[in-house]
């Protein structure tokens, strides 16, 4: 299952200390194979988001190195970062769509900023919106869409540049169970097309049903790395399961 001979993400002895002294990550070693689907579980503040931010170079690690598709990104020049990000799609709990642009325009925007050929934009955007079943609502503004629909638009935007990796930081955190399953279906579909998908989540049921590789984090440390794993609550005094919608 684990295609470590063809890794897409590699982290070696990675640690991250924020300027305020908070130790977000400690000595993380991780290898993710091309085309894998992984869950990243752990409490709020366990370092899931920080880990993801290192992959798309939102943060620089304090020590250690990160490789994406064989290229070390930690010593990458600032001008190279946009090129890296075009190969990584990211979605968030709060969707991060531009409220004054329609679904179509939001997705097209990600193409426009990369200087894509203008003639290709409508075709590519329609293709991405079709993939997430949002073609009919392409002309709606985010405010006119449900949470699940907004997240689907965000996924379409994340996929528009054909990324190697899709990072999903609590993608269902703001969604009802039905919509959450919709999003999971779509992420599976994306994964089936060959994109590596990394999902940070609190949703125990989802993790248990999906039977994918599970990385368990607690206070910046990687506790477990389970193939076809279940949601393992971290040995911590805090509640293991954060209920959705709470």
């Amino acid at each position: 299952m684990l295609e470590t001979d063809d890794p897409i993400i590699e982290m070696h002895h990675l640690s991250l200390v924020y300027p305020n002294g908070v130790r977000a990550l400690q000595d993380i070693d991780l290898v993710v194979g091309k085309g894998e689907f992984l869950f990243l579980v752990g409490h709020t503040g366990s370092g899931k988001s920080s880990l993801m931010k290192l992959i798309y170079r939102e943060h620089d690690p304090t020590t250690g190195a990160v490789f994406v598709d064989g290229q070390e990104i930690t010593d990458m020049k600032r001008s190279q970062i946009p090129l890296l990000r075009r190969r990584i799609g990211v979605i968030f709990q709060d969707f991060r769509l531009l409220s004054h642009k329609t679904a179509f325009e939001n997705v097209a925007y990600a193409l426009e900023v990369t200087g894509a050929s203008r003639a290709d934009i409508p075709r590519k955007v329609t293709k991405a919106l079709t993939l997430v079943n949002m073609r009919e609502k392409a002309g709606r503004l985010p405010g006119e869409l449900s949470g699940g629909e907004q997240q689907r638009v965000a996924i379409a935007r994340a996929l528009i540049n054909d990324p190697l990796i899709l990072l999903a930081d609590e993608p269902t955190g703001n969604l009802d169970p039905d919509s959450s399953w919709d999003i999971m279906q779509i992420l599976s579909k994306v994964n089936a097309r060959g994109t590596t998908v990394l999902v940070a989540t609190h949703n125990q049921q989802m993790v248990d049903v999906m039977q994918k590789r599970v990385l368990v984090m607690d206070r910046g440390v990687m506790l477990h790395d389970l193939q076809r794993g279940q949601y393992v609550p971290a040995a911590s005094s805090r509640p293991a399961l954060v209920l959705e919608g709470v």
Partner: peptide, 19 residues
């Protein structure tokens, strides 16, 4: 409304469809 969750479709394929 009360649909039981099913595991979504199968494992990843290798060989990426890349434009």
């Amino acid at each position: 409304p009360g649909r039981t969750p099913e595991p979504p479709e199968a494992s990843p394929k290798t060989g990426q469809e890349r434009i």
